[in-house]
Design a protein around this nucleic acid. Structure first.
Lengths: 195, 195
DNA sequence: ACCTGAACACCGTTCAAGT
DNA sequence: ACCTGAACACCGTTCAAGT
């Protein structure tokens, strides 16, 4: 019978994360991950179906924890946004994968539902809450990804903190106003968007 | 002396774009690009320093054209946003690179300056215009990247059109309100952002 | 000047073999 | 059951050689 396994799927994922953090996405290689675990490259394939599978697992590990239920919707949205930005800062090499991969997993659905629930609690109608979730999530992910990629490196960290605070304040303002308009008339506010 | 070149840098970039469109980022390989041009792999290196250099050139080619100067600031912002979304739809495989790579090139600076100029024309003070540019650009890029990655595939194209219209309307609303607040007090609108 | 042929180091993956 | 060794197809890149 099988001797106790030397490595596990979660160990492989953790090692891959560390390799990516240290050597970038280009340095994230199966041999590099194996070396960090003190094991042959081929041993990884017993715990991970392929490199693509490993990347999916990394994206999963990047998802932020759900905020405490008893907090206000404002606090929950703020906490999730802050957690996203934190993750981007800690794992800049693999963070872009979050926007790149479908992420149709259970955890990702929970998080999306959590944001929608907060928005409903803020008073938005179901369809407006769903739409607001899409726009807010992509805006937050977009800024975090840009920051992680060094897009704003010519600005002080303090300036970027204020950027992010303003983004959250803007979101707050829009929610207070009843969320994004859901009628087709909204498209006319900025012409050229329909072309 | 040199016979007329069979290929050029721009031909290599165009071929790479076509390969990526057809076979995805993973299929974008130097041999594949060369084959499409009817040339040996090694011939590419006379026109492109490396694959990384080629990817940078692709990102450059992805940048939208500057809108006509005589248009209103509203029209110009709308046109640029629409152009970005259009590009994402046409080149979904390489579009994510736009958020991933620094893009500190001349053209990218022109575009950023164009957005800032439009915002100044809308009445924003210099520092607010600069901040609004960062937030607007990343929000638009974020949504376009998410859409290109199939993040919203479970929604009708028509729903996504409205999403995007709402995003532009929201931006418009914030600009009319004087742009994003620039003081530190803005951070308190959504607590948890400072942690 | 531009392209080709041969070659090298490397990566993802498979498969049979070991314990 | 889990890991290893050997092997294969492939990719990015270099260099000397052809025209």
């Amino acid at each position: 019978m099988g001797r106790p396994a030397q490595i596990s799927r979660s160990a492989v994922v953790a090692a891959a994360m560390a390799v990516a953090d240290e050597h970038g996405l280009a340095g994230l290689t199966m041999p590099a991950v194996a070396a960090r675990l003190g094991v042959t490259t081929m041993a990884l394939y017993r715990h991970v179906a392929s490199k693509d599978d490993l990347l999916d697992a990394l994206v999963e590990a990047l998802l932020p924890p759900l905020p405490p239920e008893q907090a206000s919707w404002r606090e929950r949205l703020g906490a999730m946004a802050a957690a996203i930005r934190d993750t981007a800062a800690r794992h800049p090499a693999i963070f872009p994968l979050l926007l790149q991969r479908p992420a149709a997993t259970e955890r990702s659905r929970e998080i999306r539902d959590g944001v929608v629930a907060a928005l409903r609690q803020a008073g938005l109608a179901p369809d407006r809450a769903a739409r607001a979730e899409r726009l807010i999530s992509t805006a937050v992910l977009g800024y975090a990804a840009g920051e992680a990629a060094g897009r704003f490196d010519h600005h002080d960290r303090h300036v970027r903190d204020e950027d992010f605070a303003c983004l959250l304040a803007a979101i707050d303002t829009l929610i207070e106003g009843g969320g994004p308009a859901s009628g087709p008339a909204a498209g006319r506010a900025v012409p050229g968007s329909g072309g």
